[in-house]
Write a protein that binds this DNA or RNA. Structure first.
Lengths: 67, 67
DNA sequence: TTACAATGTCAAGTTTATTTTACATTTTTA
DNA sequence: TAAAAATGTAAAATAAACTTGACATTGTAA
């Protein structure tokens, strides 16, 4: 899963720490998600989408791979 | 978090087992989510939204509680 | 009314998301 | 250029999502 967090954060002029506080997670969680270490929980994805006034799927790009 | 999974599943005439297979999780996972035992991962939420041709937030209703 | 399908649930185990603490590196600012 | 701020990263711990297997209950159809 790819994501546009870093760009959105830059556009809104937030530091990782400020964003973390805004959505109530640790700074390391924001960093790890930006770096693609893991995907956010649904709740966190919703909070981020609301904060940036966009859709979850505009931030988190998931491409289904044929199983 | 509330969700409309059971209703959507009924509208589309899926059993829990059929839905589970369609989104590649176990039947127990679908049942647990319907029953509110836990929230789906972001990937599962995306798969469900795509299957039902709707938005994640139309299926999963999260109300931010003031912290 | 008996069989079968669907649903509910539980326990135990695995994987993934997230936390805290800590420190190193990079970037920005005084 | 030195200090401060921001970012990257890692380990250890906890919590949450999800699996498999098993069984009980409910709903449905023969």
């Amino acid at each position: 899963m790819k994501n546009k967090l870093k760009v959105l954060r830059a556009e809104h002029d937030y530091t990782q720490d400020q964003l973390a506080k805004a959505v109530e997670v640790s700074r390391q969680t924001i960093n790890a998600i930006e770096k693609g270490k893991f995907d956010p929980s649904l709740v966190l994805a919703i909070k981020l989408a609301r904060l940036f006034k966009t859709d979850i799927e505009a931030i988190f790009i998931y491409e289904d791979q044929p199983s």
